[in-house]
């Protein structure tokens, strides 16, 4: 069973007086949706980069399927905080680039790219240039590009951060649909408390100075969505409001400590 593990990871950037992250353990199995929350600077992006193989931990281990992570790999696809798309390519070409790196034949790339764009509800935007797209559309292209790598794990860094509330809510269900359909493991960073509750099978609350885990939650609302319950009905459940209060408290406690 695919397994992405950060084991007592510390991150100490060169030239920094103190470590950015200290002894954080996170475990993502196939089918998990793990969400990192915590205020800016508590090391969420750094941890994601360790999982991606872009940052080497100063202590501790990062491994995938039992093998140590030594660099980036297409078994873990990343969607970055700023979409990191290529503006010299169209939306379709951005997705096709990932397919090309996987050795998909040229004749098949465009067709497959359009399928992936349709999956994120951008079926007719393939010919658009990146700068012609709204923030939400860009994030979806980034998602389609990540999915093109057919990864076992998706690493998402505030993928919905720049979106307006309505688009954001719609994107949350898109994410849930993709997750249930593909059965990848997801490790995601967000600032949204409701978003974390709607999406996560597990929430990891981090506190700054140095970044560390203060609490873990297993809200289970996303399993209910996967079982067919609409998001509306989930959010109006009193249990959702209660969880919301509890998570908010945990984040503030972490900051106060």
């Amino acid at each position: 069973m695919p397994h992405l593990v950060l084991d007592k990871v510390s991150i100490h950037y060169d030239g920094q007086p103190a470590p950015a992250v200290e002894r954080v353990s996170i475990d993502v199995a196939k089918g998990d949706f793990v969400v990192l929350v915590g205020r800016s600077g508590c090391g969420k992006t750094s941890l994601l980069n360790v999982a991606a193989g872009l940052v080497t931990p100063s202590r501790g281990q990062a491994s995938i399927n039992g093998r140590g992570i030594t660099g980036p790999g297409s078994d873990r696809a990343v969607v970055f905080q700023n979409d990191a798309l290529f503006p010299w390519l169209t939306a379709r070409e951005n997705v096709a680039f990932a397919l090309r790196l996987r050795g998909v034949r040229p004749a098949e790339r465009a067709r497959r790219a359009d399928e992936l764009l349709a999956l994120v509800k951008l079926g007719d935007a393939g010919d658009k240039h990146i700068w012609e797209l709204s923030g939400g559309m860009r994030q979806r292209v980034g998602l389609a590009r990540a999915l093109a790598a057919e990864p076992q794990f998706l690493l998402l860094d505030e993928p919905l951060g720049a979106l307006d509330a309505l688009t954001r809510e719609r994107m949350q269900t898109t994410l849930l649909d993709l997750w249930t359909a593909s059965h990848v493991g997801v490790l995601m960073v967000t600032h949204g408390i409701e978003e974390a509750l709607v999406l996560a099978t597990r929430i990891v609350v981090l506190a700054p100075g140095p970044g560390r885990v203060v609490r873990g939650f297993e809200p289970g609302f996303s399993r209910r969505y996967a079982a067919g319950e609409p998001v509306r009905s989930i959010k109006s459940d009193p249990a959702f409001a209660a969880a919301r209060g509890e998570l908010t408290d945990a984040i503030f406690e972490g900051e106060a400590a």
């Binding site: 991606a52 193989g53 790999g73 290529f86 680039f97 990932a98 093109a148």
Partner: peptide
């Protein structure tokens, strides 16, 4: 952009492919 380079690397691009693309 560091993020674009990282995006390409995480999609499996080699060093030469990162330079070219």
């Amino acid at each position: 952009s560091r993020e674009r380079v990282n995006a390409a690397r995480s999609l499996g691009a080699t060093r030469a492919q990162v330079v070219r693309h």
